[in-house]
């Protein structure tokens, strides 16, 4: 397969995943009496969420700056049959409230949806306000499902799917206005645990997740112009990983690049390596992501290129990798 006729990210409008997710959940609250929305000092004064709070005072909550309490409150609601969607900055969720995620959500095994925003470099506010560890943490947490939608429209698909998903889910989304990877007329089935193979390549397959998918698509175009056959896989679910998609990609090209807005230790690249080693499938592997460091301060337009995670950086790394 070649070309990107169905995938025109660079032409798509930018959408704010965070806002899109909130709006979608508020609609779900009206449709489904189980759905709750909980934030920690992240709702705007007099805004839509606070108005909904007046209507549903025990289902729409802004608990204030107390993320630990927030997560266990959600677990309590879930125990009683509600379906709570918790949303705050990833670092204050995955890092600060990990005790509560570990014990009250995962161990107790209640279907709480944890939405960690400001993923990876998208925050721009430095190491206290971003997280680069969620994949590793949630991958090693029993009962947990870990997803990283690549754009706002995919977030909506995920949220609707999550209404009938019985397990806890951690949903990792970026901060700001991210371009759409998929156009509205591109139809695909979104299934948790099933990668979306955007296109297959015989020289190289790029397995990307979250924000990395858009940049991987752009990088693949640049590589195709140089005559390479490059595949792109949207690995929106980190756990359970789609092993079949990983193994097939490795068999097809013998060369894999992973792209993730996350530490390269313990993230998508490590999980892909696990799959291949356990399956006994050989492939060369290059991991693109945060090189095990607390990231620099800087806004996304500057910081993604700095770490070689923009399209040009991915294409450059890929060319070097292909030419070895």
């Amino acid at each position: 397969m070649g070309g990107f006729t169905f995938c025109c990210g660079d032409m798509g409008p930018a959408m704010e995943a965070k806002g899109t997710v909130t709006n979608e959940i508020l609609e779900m609250i009206e449709d489904d009496p189980r759905v709750c929305y909980i934030n920690a000092d992240g709702t705007s004064r007099g805004g839509r969420v606070q108005k909904m709070q007046e209507k549903y005072p025990d289902r729409v909550l802004d608990v204030g700056i107390q993320e630990m309490n927030m997560v266990t409150i959600a677990a309590g609601l879930a125990k009683q049959g509600f379906l709570p969607y918790v949303q705050t900055f990833g670092p204050f969720l995955c890092v600060r409230a990990l005790d509560q995620i570990h014990n009250d959500v995962a161990y107790n095994d209640y279907p709480v949806r944890l939405i960690g925003t400001h993923a990876g470099l998208s925050s721009g506010y430095g190491p206290t306000h971003n997280t680069i560890i969620e994949f590793g943490v949630m991958n090693s947490l029993p009962n947990m499902t870990m997803v990283a939608p690549c754009d706002a429209e995919q977030c909506k698909k995920l949220l609707r799917k999550s209404l009938s998903y019985p397990k806890p889910i951690y949903i990792r989304i970026p901060r700001g206005e991210e371009p759409l990877v998929y156009t509205a007329d591109y139809e695909y089935d979104y299934e948790i645990g099933k990668a979306n193979i955007i296109q297959e390549g015989t020289d190289l397959n790029i397995i990307a997740t979250g924000m990395g998918v858009y940049n991987a698509v752009q990088a693949a175009r640049q590589l195709e112009e140089k005559g390479y056959s490059v595949g792109v896989i949207d690995m929106h679910t980190i756990k359970p990983i789609d092993k079949e998609a990983v193994i097939n990609a490795a068999k097809k090209s013998g060369a894999i690049i992973t792209v993730e807005d996350h530490n390269i230790l313990g993230g998508l690249g490590s999980i892909v390596a696990d799959v291949l080693m356990e399956a006994g499938v050989f492939a060369r592997l290059k991991k693109i992501g945060v090189p095990d460091t607390f990231v620099e301060f800087g806004y996304p337009e500057e910081i993604y290129p700095y770490y070689g995670m923009d399209a040009a950086g991915i294409a450059k790394t890929a060319l070097e990798f292909l030419q070895v």
């Binding site: 025990d58 125990k79 049959g81 005790d99 009250d104």
Partner: peptide
């Protein structure tokens, strides 16, 4: 047993969630 416990300092937050659920 209503919820699994062991790590300290969780019970009161469980109560808050359950209290909301019942009040709702």
């Amino acid at each position: 047993i209503e919820v699994s416990t062991g790590s300290l300092g969780h019970g009161l937050s469980w109560c808050c969630g359950l209290a909301h659920a019942n009040r709702g």
